[in-house]
Amino acid sequence: MVEFEIDGQKVQAQEGWTVLETARKYGIHIPTLCYHEAVKPSGACRLCVVELREGDWSKVVISCMYPVAEGLKVFTDSERVKNVRRWILEMLLAECPASEEIRQLAAQYGVTSTRFAIHDPDQDCILCGLCVRVCAEVVGANAISTVGRGVHKQIGAPYLEPGSDCVACGSCVTVCPTGAMRRRLDAVRGKPKVELAR
């Protein structure tokens, strides 16, 4: 048993748990986008950040991967945490203006407009990679991957060529936090006309 504090509340966790797992067990809410119990965490969206403090020392980490340790002092809503979260939500509003889910999430945290330039008004994928991970780790089909690097990164069938690896299980659609995968499935499986995944 590991004992530590989240927002001043004493909590207990099993050795090997993450901060997020512990918080959820206690009903302490931390927003997440790229985390799902079914697959390994990847730490891509950074929305689940929390602050650790010890005297003068303080550090921001992601709760979905940070392992619990005795005596941690975790803060889920400190100024530093809020600053990161607000900026990420603003970024997401600009990156995925077409996602209702993102808009609602942002609004929950008081973010309703963005200072970032919107490049594609139809975009709804946040590149969290959940679809890719579920397809590889749970389904074992490896029909989707990320293609390209940096700002050019996209989700699609490998090499953006529709292939025959997809088994049409729909797992990716289920885990997708923004509903983006629904629109993309045909591009993975190879129906013409539909625009390829971005």
Binding site: S42, G43, A44, C45, R46, L47, V84, W87, I88, M91, L92, A94, E95, R115, F116, A117, I126, L127, G129, T146, G148, R149, G150, V151, H152, K153
Partner: peptide, 18 residues
């Protein structure tokens, strides 16, 4: 760095451009 960002995480992929 914007060019070299791997694009995995959101703050770097989008924030550097801003």
């Amino acid at each position: 760095l914007e060019e070299e960002s791997c694009g995995k995480c959101i703050p770097c992929r989008l924030g550097l451009t801003r």
